[in-house]
Design a protein around this nucleic acid. Sequence first.
DNA 1: CGGGCACTTGATAGTAATCAAGTCCGGTGG
DNA 2: CCACCGGACTTGATTACTATCAAGTGCCCG
Lengths: 237, 237
Amino acid sequence: MDNSLYTCDSCQHKLCAGRVSIFTSLNREELTKVAKLIVHKKYKKGELLLYEGEVRNDLIIVNKGQVKAFKNSAEGREQILYIFSEGDFFGEKNLLRDQASNYGVEALEETHVCIIHKDKFQKLVQEYPYIGLKVMEILCQRLDRLENTVETMGTRTVDARVSSVLLEFADKFGKPSTQGTIIDLPLSREGIANYIGLTRETVSRKMSSMQDEGMIEMIGNKKILLLDRLALEKSIG
Amino acid sequence: MDNSLYTCDSCQHKLCAGRVSIFTSLNREELTKVAKLIVHKKYKKGELLLYEGEVRNDLIIVNKGQVKAFKNSAEGREQILYIFSEGDFFGEKNLLRDQASNYGVEALEETHVCIIHKDKFQKLVQEYPYIGLKVMEILCQRLDRLENTVETMGTRTVDARVSSVLLEFADKFGKPSTQGTIIDLPLSREGIANYIGLTRETVSRKMSSMQDEGMIEMIGNKKILLLDRLALEKSIG
DNA sequence: CGGGCACTTGATAGTAATCAAGTCCGGTGG
DNA sequence: CCACCGGACTTGATTACTATCAAGTGCCCG
């Protein structure tokens, strides 16, 4: 375990807490106060930030990098539930009571996180009730997203599922370019498959045929150029 | 529209609000106060309480009966997301801001609901912060359940999915008997299929074979006797 | 007792998982 | 800078399974 704990000195001048959506309403002074409650930690690609079933008593906020939240079934199949990136948090259940995590979390790349102890965060919420509302709002958004995922996995064709995930990634990680949107994929083919409940071969095949039809263009293995957004949306319904 | 609005007079003496989990911490006096903020409404089986995309500004609590929350895909397939029964609520997103509902809600039987306007509920939360925490706790539970559903639909075999839903219903709606647990099914075969992303024929077949194997016994179409809970749990993994 | 609807059961076909080779890409070391 | 190596990805062949299509059957209610 070489995850070094260190103070916020390294980024205090940048007011790192301000990059996190739940603190956006705070002014500079308040942010400095928040920063003092925060412990930072770094993880390398592949390291576990949290394992399924682990009991913790703090809230973890991603400050830099990306992580995946996943569950492993008995047969060894992985289901990815969330991709958390800069500004996202997890462990919110711990704010209410110490509880076993429903999923594991693993770094997809070098990742820096801010950790706030439950008690300190609760005091923060008492002082700035807006933060509690913001957390609740984000939980509602997360519910919406999961509800849509369940619908996609329950009723949509495989093509629609692949289109869905590409559009989701385009919105989250896409950058506009002259020809279309360039998506930096946070996951490998296998990861994408585990995100939408398919096998890597099926994802590979579907993406190839989407390329043949001119909807997308694969740039290496980690980027995709989205050429025909409308066609993808149409394939969803 | 023959849904008659009426005051809480009809059930005031029963302190109906006390049957709702988010108000369990309140004493008799406080409950009476809450009851005055509530509007009641009745729905017959099959009536819509809320349609997908509708914008409302209140929280709806089920006081008696059962409803299903569902989404309809473009091809006309239905995905059931939740079964809400006595004590459950929906419309929580409205507490934050007026927003389109992500799902429709339909009564599965004669259903009575309590409706609280957003503004009144927000004042209630300010006066009794515990209520806000309780709402957040239930949202977290709902997230856990959906996360498990996504895992089930993404990684589990069809047998495991059917077992999952039977165990879920057994916990929620089951009554112990001498031979095992008797489940009052809230949904038809087609409803169950739409809850776990299968067709009614597949559900029918799987349940028949589970009966052949002595795991369950079907009593008419609306009840199931769960004989071998362990076998079901084992089939999930 | 009769009718309709939900459910069951059967046959067939379509589709994705699986099994099995290749191929490509990125990184490493000479 | 180039050649090599390994892991990720692609593609192909086959199998397994569930959706679909199509009759029946039985349950529940009037």
